[in-house]
Simulated assay, not measured.
Amino acid sequence: MPIVTVIVPWRESPSRVPAFEALQRWYAEYLPEFDLRTVDATDGIFNLAACRNVGVAALSSDEVVVINDADTLPEPAALREAVAAAATSGLVHLPYTEYRWLGESGTAQVMAGREVSECTVEQVVETACSGVYVTTRRTWDAHGGQDERFRGWGFEDAAWYLAHETLLGAAPVRHAGRVYALSHVAEIRAGTHYDANASLMERYRDAAGDPTAMDQLVSEWAERKVA
């Protein structure tokens, strides 16, 4: 497999450094043909959606890219399968059917060298739609990417999923496998920005299933480049 670019939204904070270092070690050991690049797209409040969009925009239209959160370890086989499929499908791929949050105890076990699949799991989410995405810039542009009006933390991934379903006519493609989310100090999900994110999410829910309404919503902030 040729070298694959991995975009990692990243702004250093003390509690997140161990997880990010574990991610770097994971790729070096299990996925050495993948090239990690960090992206921080804004000077103000950290914006996950903007990081993902900026990272994808720097690539050629048909280059396959992995968008990987700085705290989430993907399984190699599922990720390689998703990369191969995303090149031609016209859809975003999720290299997992099970999202495992390890919590403090499971994360400590990973850091101590235990095989990640054998570590303590605090929560399993089978409907998760964040953590790791596989796409091309052409596919990302076709449904507008992720809405950069979601500032701080919360909702950008769920809104993106609805836009993908509505504008591309299908849900992102899942591949059998797991991702493992490592623990760190939780971000505050409250306050003015969080409330604004929640209100914007309601607009995405209202537009879900209606391509015209969704196109209008996405077009408020981004130009869709339909393939």
Rank of each mutant, 00 (worst) to 15 (best):
G152A: 02
E156S: 14
S130R: 12
W10R: 00
T88I: 12
A108N: 05
E118I: 05
A58S: 12
E223Q: 13
A78F: 12
S105W: 06
R80H: 10
T5N: 15
L217E: 08
T135A: 14
R37D: 02
V4W: 11
V66D: 03
E202C: 11
A28R: 04
V54R: 15
D147H: 09
A112L: 04
A213D: 11
E98M: 10
T42I: 08
S15T: 15
E187Y: 12
L168R: 02
R203I: 00
A112I: 01
R114P: 00
Y194K: 08
Q109Y: 04
P95K: 01
G191R: 11
Y161T: 02
R178I: 13
V17C: 06
A159C: 09
R224E: 01
V4G: 03
V179K: 00
V226T: 08
L59V: 00
L217W: 00
V83M: 09
V179T: 08
A108E: 05
A186D: 07
A196F: 09
V56H: 10
A227M: 11
I7D: 04
D69E: 14
A207T: 01
D147A: 10
H93Y: 10
A112Q: 07
T135Q: 05
L91A: 15
I3T: 13
V226A: 14
Q146L: 12
E122T: 06
L48R: 08
V8A: 03
F155M: 14
R25F: 00
D141F: 01
E63Y: 06
Y96S: 03
P32R: 03
Y161W: 06
V125Q: 00
A198G: 04
R189M: 14
A57Y: 12
Y204I: 03
T212C: 06
R80D: 05
E148H: 10
G154P: 05
N68A: 00
H193Y: 14
E126I: 06
D35I: 03
G90F: 06
R16Q: 14
E81H: 15
G103R: 02
G209A: 12
R203T: 05
H184T: 11
H93V: 03
A142N: 10
A186M: 07
D195Y: 03
I45K: 06
I3V: 09
E81M: 11
N47R: 12
G152N: 08
E187Q: 14
A49V: 08
E75V: 13
E115N: 13
D35F: 09
D210W: 06
L168C: 07
R52H: 05
G154A: 05
G169Y: 04
T136P: 14
I45G: 08
G44V: 04
W153A: 09
R52Q: 15
D147G: 07
V132K: 00
F34A: 09
A87W: 10
A70M: 07
T5C: 13
